[in-house]
């Protein structure tokens, strides 16, 4: 479970079938396949038959649950090589979805956050979505100076690939941007960097 002192970090759920929904869309990435397998196991045959699964095999920790996911008699399983592709696939699926749909998300914080951005753009409300964090707690970081998004950031200080400034990762998560904020680390005295540390991943 993701328990930190960071107040802005989302509070995640545990994936369980939402019986009030008539249609289900479940999207996961890497280690998120594990909670997804648990979710599908808990579903009735009728729920499985009305479930579309999207799975990205991209993983920071190297876990792949594709063969396990293929065992379920779901309506459709769409596999993607990368997380961004899976989020794009989710956009396509939600564009055609109707009221009465429930969404399940599992994986890294960056994957859940960017998927949630898509769900929000379709007007999905929090009571129609469950999110479960899985795998590493590496952070998605937004550069406050050039707007570049860096995925899988594991250290407190790093060089922004967008503008090459030294950034320090603040413990502030933006749900809207689905990222932590990175700001110039040596703005007071150029070149004088704070001690680097591994983030609590």
């Amino acid at each position: 479970m993701l328990i930190t002192g960071i107040k802005s970090r989302p509070v995640y759920d545990e994936l369980t079938p939402m019986a009030s929904g008539l249609n289900h869309i479940a999207a996961a990435q890497g280690s998120g396949g594990k909670p997804l397998v648990r979710l599908l196991t808990a579903m009735t045959p009728e729920q499985l038959a009305s479930t579309t699964v999207l799975y990205s095999t991209e993983s920071f920790t190297g876990h792949n649950f594709l063969s396990e996911l293929q065992q379920f008699a779901v309506r459709e399983l769409r596999v993607f090589p990368g997380n961004a592709d899976a989020v794009g696939g989710l956009d396509t699926v939600l564009a055609a979805a109707e009221m009465g749909t429930r969404l399940y998300l599992a994986g890294s914080e960056g994957f859940i956050g960017t998927s949630m951005q898509v769900a929000t753009s379709y007007g999905m409300h929090r009571d129609e979505v469950l999110r479960e964090h899985a795998g590493s707690f590496v952070r998605r970081v937004w550069c406050a100076h050039c707007g570049h998004y860096s995925e899988n950031v594991a250290h407190r200080v790093f060089v922004c690939p967008g503008c090459e400034l030294n950034l320090i990762v603040r413990d502030h998560y933006s749900g809207r941007l689905a990222a932590f904020q990175g700001v110039k680390a040596d703005s007071e005295v150029p070149g004088e960097l704070p001690a680097n540390e591994e983030l609590d991943t």
């Binding site: 009030s20 008539l22 249609n23 009221m99 009465g100 429930r102 929090r126 009571d127 129609e128």
Partner: peptide, 11 residues
């Protein structure tokens, strides 16, 4: 009717 169609209360 809305509940029967799977609508959540927020809508």
């Amino acid at each position: 009717s809305a509940h029967g169609l799977g609508w959540s209360d927020s809508n």
